[in-house]
Simulated assay, not measured.
Amino acid sequence: MAIKEVHGAPNLATLYPKALLGGTKHGDKLPDTELVRKDVVVDPAQLAAYNEVCGFRLSDELPATYPHILAFGLQMQLMTEHEFPFPLLGMVHVANNITQKRAIRLDETFTLKVYAENLRPHEKGRQFDVLSELSPSGADDVVWRDVSTYLRRDESGTGSSGPREQLAAPTPNAIWRIPADIGRRYAEVSGDRNPIHLHPLTARAFGFPSAIAHGMWTMAHALAAFEGRLPDAFTLDTRFKQPVLLPAKAAFTTWRTGDGWAFELWNARKPNPHLEGSITAV
Results as ranks from 00 to 15, higher is better:
residue 189 V to R: 09
residue 32 D to C: 00
residue 72 F to D: 02
residue 100 Q to M: 05
residue 80 T to G: 00
residue 27 G to Q: 15
residue 55 G to L: 05
residue 185 R to H: 11
residue 206 F to W: 09
residue 210 S to H: 15
residue 81 E to L: 04
residue 65 T to S: 10
residue 131 L to K: 06
residue 209 P to C: 04
residue 278 S to M: 02
residue 198 L to S: 10
residue 103 A to G: 08
residue 163 P to A: 11
residue 49 A to Y: 07
residue 127 Q to M: 15
residue 59 S to H: 06
residue 185 R to F: 11
residue 204 R to A: 11
residue 207 G to K: 12
residue 35 L to K: 00
residue 178 I to A: 03
residue 214 H to R: 14
residue 106 L to P: 01
residue 215 G to E: 08
residue 280 T to P: 05
residue 1 M to R: 09
residue 127 Q to C: 11
residue 41 V to N: 13
residue 20 L to V: 14
residue 24 T to Y: 07
residue 102 R to H: 05
residue 14 T to L: 15
residue 90 G to H: 09
residue 68 H to Q: 13
residue 193 R to A: 02
residue 124 K to N: 14
residue 237 D to Q: 12
residue 226 F to A: 01
residue 268 A to V: 03
residue 263 F to P: 06
residue 270 K to N: 04
residue 189 V to E: 05
residue 215 G to M: 09
residue 118 N to G: 00
residue 55 G to N: 02
residue 101 K to R: 15
residue 180 A to V: 09
residue 104 I to K: 02
residue 227 E to W: 11
residue 118 N to E: 14
residue 177 R to K: 14
residue 23 G to W: 02
residue 139 A to T: 12
residue 234 F to L: 10
residue 118 N to P: 02
residue 51 N to G: 04
residue 143 V to S: 09
residue 109 T to D: 04
residue 147 V to L: 01
residue 190 S to P: 04
residue 147 V to A: 04
residue 168 A to S: 10
residue 71 A to I: 01
residue 41 V to W: 01
residue 59 S to M: 06
residue 2 A to T: 08
residue 191 G to S: 00
residue 98 I to N: 02
residue 209 P to V: 03
residue 88 L to S: 06
residue 37 R to P: 05
residue 60 D to V: 10
residue 50 Y to S: 11
residue 11 N to V: 02
residue 49 A to D: 04
residue 263 F to M: 12
residue 98 I to D: 01
residue 167 L to T: 04
